[in-house]
Write a protein that binds this DNA or RNA. Structure first.
Lengths: 242, 242
DNA sequence: CTTGGCGTGTCAAAAGCATAACAGAACACC
DNA sequence: GGTGTTCTGTTATGCTTTTGACACGCCAAG
């Protein structure tokens, strides 16, 4: 199981940067930029150029040694690597507030994850339309997953039902679960899970905030909000104190 | 700027695990468990016991060498470390679908982040009530932030306005920004930002899915969904193929 | 009182990741 | 045609994080 399957033994950290690269490149593409050097691209993302080249290196040459990257070549290459060269059929399971919000988030469509169905058990929600799509009964999920070759499921049900629903999704043939429930899911081999834990995010932020406040009160007796000077931003799901 | 301010020079990865520890411990506390060993706690979170002890070690002894951890001691200790011993006043800026969904997400309240205001510029939304709180005009934000000592702001406006709104939040005195917009924010020193990038998450998942499919078609000619056997779950914002 | 088992705190080894350094390819200019 | 510059692919170095190992404290049983 530790085999080197093509371009799949890539550091976790690199994987999380690929979408950022793609995003920025699409932006450049949209404004007509044709070439971009590793330095330019890296700086605009607040990372080191060497890291970017290192990341790309996992997937073979995107450019010849002497020439900068060609945006029009790089975008489809990254899309292929990430697996969104063709749209990835996706469903949303759980049509509560969060599920509805995600269903309304058109960026998902635009970025290669068309929503092929929204499901819930609540009879009051079933039938309600969101962006032209009705909320369907859970019973219909398996059928649609199979008939439309759905690969990814976004799970936005309450934590108490998350495992049970995840089991159904897996049984129906879903290979990737984007889990918003505050529960660790148990899934069989060959299924990928990504937990997007709101509480974790805000608590990590709180820790940083606490540290900032402590530093301020300890260091300077009276330090007030002043002129914005330095900048700091961040990629992925991590964060940075600036 | 590289000073060792109390317990604040802690690895990023450790910070992201603290909320998971707390969550699990609260669960144990709720069902009446009094003591827990590092092994038990670690296994239930799918991490190594040595890592858990190492993490705790950053903050000094939670237990005496020979005794297991006492849940009732650990929970408040972690809450103090994370900075949620007392509730952290929080606001939501941007009352679109996602903002409303988060406002409805009562777990935020329960976990120490009471929502002290929901703001938007859209006159159609202003006045609408969510969980007993009206959506207010952006103009009122700064006042409330100051009067209620709001520390954290959840930013759910469109990417095109994110930077501008973030500037207002910082100027009003907010110290931590939980950013859901697909934009890198520039903030002055002394402000923490955490980006929760949906697109990054789902694309990272997609990469894993693509790898799984490739492995399946390459390795076994006909491999069908079988009996769930092994388990795999994940904390934070990371993910794991199982 | 002694002994054995368990469990933490602590340190050392290993792995993973980020950064820097370098060699060589392409192009532009002279 | 040569030469200098720019840029990538690649390898090497250093650092952070994870994992493993161990010494000692505590408790229970004999």
């Amino acid at each position: 199981m530790r085999k080197k399957r093509k371009g799949c033994d890539v550091p976790e950290a690199t994987i999380h940067r690929l979408p950022l690269y793609l995003e920025k490149l699409k932006l450049l593409q949209a404004i007509g930029v044709e070439d971009v050097s590793s330095r330019q691209l890296a700086e605009s993302l607040d990372i080191k150029a060497s890291q970017l080249r290192h990341d790309f290196h996992y997937f073979g040459g995107f450019s010849r040694p002497g020439r900068p990257y060609q945006v029009d070549k790089l975008v489809p290459a990254l899309e292929r690597i990430i697996g969104i060269a063709d749209p990835v059929p996706t469903i949303i399971v759980g049509a509560g507030h969060l599920g509805q919000a995600l269903a309304n988030y058109q960026n998902l469509d635009l970025q290669g994850f068309p929503i092929h169905g929204i499901f819930d058990v609540n009879p009051r929600l079933i039938g309600l339309e969101i962006r032209g799509q009705p909320i369907r009964d859970m019973d219909e999920m398996a059928g649609i997953v199979r008939s439309e070759n759905v690969l990814i499921g976004i799970l936005t049900v309450p934590g108490s039902h998350a495992q049970e629903v995840a089991d159904q999704m897996v049984k129906a043939g879903i290979v990737g679960i984007f889990n918003f429930a505050p529960t660790d899911l148990k899934v069989p081999q060959g299924v990928a899970v990504r937990n997007e834990r709101l509480a974790v995010g805000i608590m990590a932020l709180s820790f940083k905030v606490k540290c900032i406040l402590e530093a301020q009160t300890q260091a300077s007796p009276a330090d007030e909000v002043g002129a914005p000077g330095k900048t700091a931003a961040e990629g992925d799901g991590h964060d940075q104190v600036s």
